[in-house]
Nucleic acid binder design. Sequence first.
DNA 1: GCATAAATATTTACAGTGTAAGTTTGACTG
DNA 2: CAGTCAAACTTACACTGTAAATATTTATGC
Lengths: 220, 220
Amino acid sequence: MKKTGKTRKHRSLTTQMIVTRAMELADKEGFDTLSMRKLAGALGVTAMSLYNHVAGKDDLLHLMLNRVVAEFESPDIGGAWEEMMRRRAHSMRRALLRHRWAPMLLMSEIAIGEEILRDTDATVGCLVTAGLTYAQADWARNAIDSHVYGYTLQELNYPVAPEEYKAAAKQYLPMISKADYPFMHAAALQIIDGKYDGMTRFDFGLEIILDGLNRWLVKG
Amino acid sequence: MKKTGKTRKHRSLTTQMIVTRAMELADKEGFDTLSMRKLAGALGVTAMSLYNHVAGKDDLLHLMLNRVVAEFESPDIGGAWEEMMRRRAHSMRRALLRHRWAPMLLMSEIAIGEEILRDTDATVGCLVTAGLTYAQADWARNAIDSHVYGYTLQELNYPVAPEEYKAAAKQYLPMISKADYPFMHAAALQIIDGKYDGMTRFDFGLEIILDGLNRWLVKG
DNA sequence: GCATAAATATTTACAGTGTAAGTTTGACTG
DNA sequence: CAGTCAAACTTACACTGTAAATATTTATGC
């Protein structure tokens, strides 16, 4: 197992490389199949080598989550807050769909880090600059984030793709007892008949919230 | 290892017992430390015995989640939809706070089962009976659920308890660079000065959504 | 009552996991 | 060239879920 002397193994690993590769693997093959051994293998290295650059799997996870948040679009200070929040929400959604493993962890981990602070600061900053109090800004941000994370997470784990709703409804209709679940039964029929496409909508909830916030602010 | 003949080990285990004990353990000691061996031990049995009543850990998980959803309050068909949705949301929140491990899994698992169907059917049923179309009912339910799950999950994982916000703000203030994160810095000061208690509010977001839905329906 | 069948609990074993501890290697420094 | 120190490696351990085979208790049929 001697070194050839040319293939440099030493000094060839960085934290950035590890995080990048980990995200690629998580994106492609799923987060739960990502093990330290597998990640190390993908980098041509043994598992324990990673521990020279990363404190542990938890630490790696936080670094990955920070990278995801880095993809969120920062609202401009001084911009029209509604439009800024809308743009941020859409960019969050795109980032979360790119990294399907992220939403659950972003919500359920105590996630702090440079990029997460930056995002929070810019968001609160935009709202406060637009005239909201810190309390109002915090509540607004929380309502929006709850929706973005909540909606996206539910959507990501929905078992059938939108273009298969009709077929799925046909397939499962006989399993939905009309006596026990009359409304679900009727809903399935509506989807089959093409009266409703079965898709919930991200923007629907988002606009309800933005509009509601706006009205509440105007009212005082 | 012969049986004493009196201490009956056989026939003494049921699926219900397993699920109940699993929920107790998860509630008390956390979901991630719940292993089949530990659960079996708590029931005075070996790990593999559980597999006679439960297909596997995944199956057990789904049974647990169904039990949680069973604690959600079913809206009445024919009731005033806004108030019904409000009551359901609050009961969801109480149940999710009782079972801190549940929200993440309810959102991220493909969860189907008797109780989950019942809840969906009753909720959609209430809304449809109140005059909404199936599409509108689905969107409304989705917006509400996204908020309930999203908010509760974020709240559950918030690192400091509400009564410690002030102390926490004092402690961490020096770590929040005024140059890099001016608004977070200012927010911390407001909390320290007692101008804002730092608590976001479940009802704030919920009422924004309910009100927004109402307006949208009236408008057509 | 007794053989047989069906449930259900147990034992053993395996391929994984994250990571603590100790060892070797490689690349700079003087 | 020798010395130093960070980085990569090896080994080992205590876990995990669960497949397969075995043992034991209960229920059924004659």
